[in-house]
Design a protein around this nucleic acid. Structure first.
Lengths: 132, 132
DNA sequence: CTTGACCTTCGAGCGACTGGAGGGTTTATC
DNA sequence: GATAAACCCTCCAGTCGCTCGAAGGTCAAG
């Protein structure tokens, strides 16, 4: 099948598949006489695998390595598990950061609302100025 | 003062200040005879204001508008309040997304650990394959 | 006179795509 | 057999917010 159908089946954009190929994540497929990429079901399975890892927000560098192992017949389970662990920590960190940020935004909103009557005259955003 | 001292006082990198200028966020300052940028305390205050808004992860597009108002003497409070509200919603959304992602990563970790004894033989990452 | 710290501009690189220009190919329809 | 729509190709630019490096100019201290 050609890239469009592969994209539909793998639930990726054709442009994303080409990008993954250029990034060395997906192997370069065969080409037909017109130069079109030709994929089979195994290729589509691999694309789905990559999509699922990306949905877990694993970086392409990790996925490239995992795909390399999988294509070469090795079991990529340990690297996948390691990548997932790294990502879980990164996600925990991002959530903690964002939670702090949200608290600060909420607090700012409240403080701005409390001084809304002073705005028209001489607001230079003291509230923001008081932030670190 | 020159850009290095302004950067230190505003707690920004000199390269960031130049970038903000090129991005139209900060106004172009005067230059001395050697072509060096010259800043005063008011400029540094504005840099700090921008840094604080960036720390709240407001996009530069919003900050540019807010700075424009502030420099022109208008009170930027309402736009700041609006931008903060938008950002608060975006942060809520990001937290929700990441929380779902974290749950999925945790679940995957557990399921992989539960089948760890099967890995050496024929792991093709069924666990990942079962993900949507 | 030289060293070193500072400054300048310009351009590339990050991550992971996305979209467009400017072409060629295939397929369905008339 | 012509034509139009849908598909494919490559290459390049843009996204966001910086950050770094190259290649050079300026200036004060020793």
């Amino acid at each position: 099948m050609r890239i469009g159908q592969a994209a539909t089946r793998a639930r990726l954009e054709a442009s994303t598949i080409r990008f993954y190929e250029s990034a060395g994540v997906l192997p370069a497929p065969a080409r037909n006489s017109a130069g079109y990429r030709e994929y089979d079901d195994v290729d589509v399975e691999l694309m789905r695998f990559v999509r699922r890892l990306r949905a877990l927000q694993l970086p392409l560098d990790d996925i490239r390595e995992v795909v390399r192992l999988r294509v070469s017949g090795d079991a990529p389970c340990q690297p996948v598990r390691d990548a997932i662990t790294r990502e879980a920590h990164a996600v925990d960190q991002r959530i903690a950061d964002l939670t702090r940020l949200r608290a600060e935004l909420r607090s700012l909103q409240e403080r701005m609302d409390a001084t809304v009557d002073e705005w028209p005259t001489s607001c230079v955003c003291h509230v923001i100025d008081q932030t670190t």
